[in-house]
């Protein structure tokens, strides 16, 4: 889905539910089917990760997801093929890419951004290319008509958050200081941080996305109430895949389970 579609998505009210999938996890075909299942379960957007050998910003569940993709023979080139199939299977759904800098650097910033747009991505976040080093990548994205997303953290000061917003189509706030992963405690502080970040971004027109540690519909709803326009669910769903996947011959259980897990994250369902 294109960048204009991403912007159109922000015109709709409420918090967008954005499940995370690694390209090739657990197989190329199942990534596409799980993306479709997520949309059937109520996903408004998708976060799409390219598997990488050294994911320093990720905790154990997302690392394991990348390992499953590698075991299925998927790297960057195959990832683009799967991405195009996901885009075809999920019309109208914005796709934000999460891709480590070296994968982009290796292909070439311009070439990678052009290929991502051609495959149907709407935006890109490189977690290990921060604001100061990101100029060439941002220019490449702009040139390709691909949105660009910067990462912020709990310790990012307000003036820096504003500078991140100036160069971002939306800002991805990591709710916890640490790597990706499900947390049992501390979500009240995450909501405080979300509210504070929203206040800093007030008037910029740049939406806020909250990720790291979200695993329930209640958290999605309260993230929305605190000012997040997107809630990303990563490790929680990677764990669902790890627990339900028993091989390609038993894909129906995984598809149904994944769809149910996404459905359970919908704030509307919580109200029923």
């Amino acid at each position: 889905m294109s960048l204009p579609a991403l912007r159109a998505a922000f015109d709709r009210p409420g918090v967008a539910l954005s499940p995370f999938l690694v390209l090739g996890d657990p197989t190329p075909r199942l990534t596409v089917e799980l993306a479709a299942a997520a949309v059937a379960g109520g996903a408004d957007m998708l976060e799409i990760g390219f598997p990488y050998s050294d994911p320093v910003a990720d905790g154990p569940e997302v690392q394991a997801a990348a390992q499953r993709a590698f075991a299925a023979g998927v790297s960057t080139r195959a990832g683009f093929r799967i991405l195009a199939e996901v885009a075809a299977a999920c019309p109208g759904i914005p796709l934000n890419l999460l891709v480590y800098g070296n994968l982009v650097h290796r292909i070439g910033y311009r070439e990678f951004a052009a290929a991502a747009t051609a495959a149907g991505a709407s935006s890109l976040l490189a977690p290990d290319i921060p604001l100061e080093e990101g100029g060439p990548l941002r220019r490449a994205c702009r040139r390709a008509g691909l949105g660009h997303v910067e990462l912020a953290g709990p310790l990012t000061p307000p003036d820096r958050l504003r500078r991140l917003a100036e160069v971002s189509d939306f800002v991805y706030l990591a709710g916890f200081q640490g790597v990706t992963g499900v947390r049992r405690r501390g979500f009240a502080e995450v909501l405080d941080r979300t509210g504070a970040a929203r206040a800093v971004l007030e008037g910029t027109g740049v939406p806020l996305c909250l990720g790291f540690g979200i695993s329930t519909a209640g958290q999605v709803a309260s993230a929305g109430a605190a000012g997040a326009r997107i809630a990303v669910i990563g490790s929680h769903l990677a764990r669902v895949i790890r627990r339900l996947y028993r091989g390609p011959e038993d894909a129906a259980t995984l598809r149904a389970g994944f769809r149910a897990a996404v459905r359970d994250l919908n704030p509307e369902d919580e109200a029923c």
Binding site: V56, A57, G101, V104, H105, G108, Y109, R110, P127, D128, I129, P130, L131, E132, E133, G135, P136, E150, L151, A152, G153, P154, L155, T156, L164, A174, Q177, G178
Partner: peptide, 21 residues
Amino acid sequence: SGVSPRLGAFGEFGGRFAPEL
């Protein structure tokens, strides 16, 4: 990519390619 780093560069090398956190 022919991309020079901005922070702490040694010519075309170096930089600060670490997560924002």
